[in-house]
Nucleic acid binder design. Structure first.
Lengths: 199, 199
DNA sequence: CAATGTGAAACCATTCACAGCA
DNA sequence: TGCTGTGAATGGTTTCACATTG
C-alpha cells in the first residue's frame, strides 16, 4: 500500500473526528472546506490516498468515509495500544481518566509517580505504580506510548529511560526539548510551547 | 524582513528552549543535530533566517543565538500578550497556574467557567470570571489568545464566540474540530488527537 | 449538472555542495 | 582545519485543470 504524506495523515485524523460529529448522511469536499478551512482540492487529494477502489458521487457517504479513514490509518485496531502517564503532577493527574481515550486506538494502561504518598491519595481506575517499577510494568503490560508529565528537571532523563524500554512515541508535556532516537516519535505539547506556535 | 517558513519557525521556537537549558558557551549545528535529531544543515538554514548581519564562527555563542531567536520571533515582547482559559474542568484547572507561562511571551490574565460554585471553590491568583462575562472581560483585559477546555458539546459554540470577540489564536483541548475563521490560528491539542498523531 | 479523481504544474522545504572565514 | 552561510538541486505537498461519472 502506498504511503500517506504526513500532512495528509494529520488532516485525515482530524477529518475522522469531524465526521463523528457530523450528522448528515452525505458530505462534500466543499462542505469540509467550510468546516475546516482546508482547500476542497486538498481534501479530495487526501481522501484519494485511502482505498481507491471505492467511488463516491454526489458527495461522500459520511459513515463510509469515516470508516475508510479509521481502517486505513488503524484508528480502530482490534486490540488497543497501551499507553501510560509518567509523572502525576497537576497535568499528569488531569489526564488520568480512561474515558479520555474511549474513542481512540489507545488504552490508558498505567500511570507512574515516584511519590508513594501521592499514589495512595489518588483515586482512579487506572493502575498506579511507583516509578521504580517503570521498566518492569512497561514490559509486562506491553506499553508502547507514553505521556511524559514529570517536572522539567527530570524530563530528559526520563525520556532516555522510556527510549531504552522500547517506547515508540512520547507526548512531551514538559518544557524541555527531548532528543530524538531512531524511530521514536515525539510531540512537544507543553502549553507555553503550543501558545508560542500560535504567534 | 523576509518571512520565516512555518517549519523553521517551529524548530527555532524549540531551539530557543533548548538553548535555555544548554550550559556551554558555544554550540555547533552538529551538537544541535545530536540533541534534537534535526539535520545540521537544516539547523543552519533555519538560523540563516534570523538577523543575517551577525557572523558566527567556531559555533554559535549560546546566549547570542538564543537572544537573536527570541527577538526575531517576538518571544520576549515588552508587554506580554494576554491569554485566558475557557472552561475549568480537570484539564482547564490543571493549567491554571501563572508560573506555567513565566518564560513565555504570554500572561494568563483570566479564566472562565459557567459554574459559580466551581469558581468559589478554586483558589488561585488568576482572576476567575463567570462565562457570561466572557466578551466583556476579553475586551477589557485585551485578551488575544485562548485555551479552550470546555466540554466537547460546547466546543464549536464557544469557539465561534471567541472568534467574534476577536481572539487571534486558540489552543483547542476539546475533541472537536473547530472551524477556521480568517486569520485565527487553531492548534488541536486534545490528548487523544495528539496520541493518534504519534501512530 | 454537480460532484469526484488525478496527472501536471507550481510552490515550498530540505538537503547538497561548496565558498568563505577565523 | 573546522565551522558557518548560501545558491542550486532535490524531494515532497498543494493547487490547478480537466477528464470522468451517475
Amino acid at each position: 500500500m502506498k504511503r500517506i504524506p504526513p500532512p495528509s495523515k494529520r488532516r485525515l485524523i482530524a477529518l475522522s473526528k469531524l465526521l463523528e460529529q457530523f450528522s448528515e448522511e452525505k458530505i462534500t469536499s466543499q462542505k469540509i472546506e467550510e468546516l475546516t478551512g482546508w482547500k476542497e482540492t486538498t481534501v479530495r487529494k487526501d481522501i484519494s490516498y485511502l482505498k481507491p477502489g471505492i467511488f463516491f458521487h454526489g458527495g461522500y457517504t459520511t459513515s463510509a468515509l469515516k470508516e475508510s479513514i479509521q481502517q486505513e490509518l488503524c484508528l480502530l485496531p482490534e486490540k488497543k495500544l497501551n499507553c501510560c502517564i509518567v509523572g502525576l503532577g497537576k497535568i499528569g493527574e488531569s489526564l488520568l481518566e480512561r474515558s479520555l481515550f474511549d474513542k481512540s486506538p489507545f488504552s490508558l494502561a498505567a500511570a507512574f509517580d515516584p511519590n508513594q504518598n501521592r499514589l495512595d491519595l489518588i483515586k482512579t481506575d487506572v493502575p498506579l505504580f511507583a516509578t521504580i517499577d517503570l521498566e518492569q510494568k512497561i514490559r509486562q503490560l506491553s506499553i508502547e506510548y507514553a505521556i511524559l508529565a514529570v517536572s522539567d528537571d527530570k524530563a530528559v532523563f526520563m525520556a532516555e529511560r522510556l527510549h531504552s524500554y522500547g517506547i515508540k512515541g512520547i507526548l512531551n508535556y514538559t518544557n524541555k526539548v527531548l532528543p530524538a532516537h531512531g524511530e521514536t516519535k515525539i510531540i512537544q505539547c507543553s502549553p507555553s510551547f503550543l501558545l508560542e506556535n500560535l504567534l
